[in-house]
Design a protein around this nucleic acid. Structure first.
Ligand SMILES: [Mn+2]
Ligand SMILES: [Mn+2]
Ligand SMILES: [Mn+2]
Ligand SMILES: [Mn+2]
Lengths: 222, 222
DNA sequence: CAATATTTTTAGACAAGTCTAAAAATATTT
DNA sequence: AAATATTTTTAGACTTGTCTAAAAATATTG
């Protein structure tokens, strides 16, 4: 069985919202995420339910079936592997790859992404630090990963991922020289707004609480 | 302006038939090539004409406009560059790449294929020996290219392309060890059916007139 | 050149995915 | 618990690309 691009995008969106909120996904949430209308979502959701990719109860939202979840994860795998390719091999910047990967993730082929994965030597994380599921759907986890917003004065770690992948945010980080792999040390935390002064090898900058809550850090136990 | 996958496939098909027969492309030819029905073609052809991608006169067939031709060529460029990638980098065999390239050729991005072209170091020909148009639409030509069916006893050359890219034919060549780059010498031509005995570095085989008419050879002037 | 065969176009229908507007169900407020 | 607000579903319509069946145009043949 093969699914349409639209069906795949719905499954991926449901997967994302389900993991984020840990409960059934509502029609409006889905409409919002997919930039479509609630009535369109209701229609589509009925189709997906009939195909047993999700369970749907009127007025109660949807959740993925085993089968639906597998498909969603495989699309995410495709997306992230393509992103690695675009950055590592074609030298795109990390804020330029998402739209193209949105298209490439839907290419139908049994082995294309597996071959690409071999070619890229089995990356575990994509250019934004997001984990890449393996062929069986297992998702790598980082132990010791915390948000920069949780670090106290004096603590330090490596920037390994971002929780916000909007282009503007990524470009902002770029300008601040905060790229993946950078070592970051907390020099000071302002009590009144929880903004932080942080130090990298090259510079010292001040970032807001909001920005710090988007940055995933692997702590250095020193 | 951006076009749908279907529109792009129609333009590509028209381009192919136009270059092959050198005259307006008929509704039936197009329907046949695209594995669709004549009535569908008539509908689509009207839409393309309204968009000024082709000129269409009822009952007289279609031909590409300048604009339509540019689009067709750019899709062909995409297709062939992706095929090179699949063979060179992902180690697909030459008979396995066409279907996937059919999908990849439609990925919308201003620079994706140009970056891929850089990455592949600007190949001029694809894995089947077909020329790859450059960004401006110029198509490389091979001087001295002839069909193996035109070579006489004693003449020799390099196999540089195939005129038939059906999987079965490509696999046949593979088994015969007739791959691109191979040197081929005509040992004998049978008068009664124009079949030939040909010699490569490794072996001597007999091939039919039909097969020989699908093989593009660059003559060696010795 | 008239009859016949073939090709092409038209007419009407369908599936996928979307939309607006209205109705129905659920949630929140008083 | 009733009134009101919000969310969700339904009804009907539209677009893209396709199809079948029938009509119209063109091509071939005797
Ligand atoms: Mn997508
Ligand atoms: Mn990513
Ligand atoms: Mn195509
Ligand atoms: Mn090719």
């Amino acid at each position: 069985m093969s699914y349409t691009k639209t069906e795949e995008n719905y499954l991926k969106a449901i997967y994302g919202l389900e993991s984020k909120f840990g409960k059934e996904v509502s029609t409006n949430e889905l409409a919002n995420k997919l930039k479509t209308k609630a009535s369109s979502v209701t229609d589509m959701v009925k189709k997906l339910a009939k195909k047993e990719l999700i369970t749907y109860e009127k007025y109660k939202g949807v959740s993925l079936s085993k089968k639906g979840k597998n498909i969603a994860i495989s699309i995410i795998r495709n997306h992230r592997i393509w992103e690695v390719f675009l950055v590592e091999k074609l030298h795109y910047k990390w804020d330029e790859v998402h739209e193209i990967a949105e298209q490439l993730e839907h290419i139908k082929s049994d082995e294309l992404v597996d071959r690409l994965d071999d070619f890229l030597e089995h990356p575990s994380f994509d250019p934004h630090g997001d984990p890449i599921p393996d062929r069986e759907g297992n998702i790598p986890v980082r132990k010791q990963a915390v948000l920069l917003s949780e670090l106290a004065k004096g603590e330090s770690g490596i920037l390994v991922g971002v929780k916000n992948t909007h282009n503007e945010f990524l470009q902002f980080l770029e300008e601040m020289n905060l790229t993946l792999g950078k070592k970051i040390e907390v020099e000071k935390v302002f009590d009144f707004d929880k903004s932080k002064v942080i130090k990298t090898s090259k510079q010292t900058v001040t970032i807001s609480k909001e920005v710090s809550s988007f940055l995933i850090i692997e702590k250095i136990n020193s």
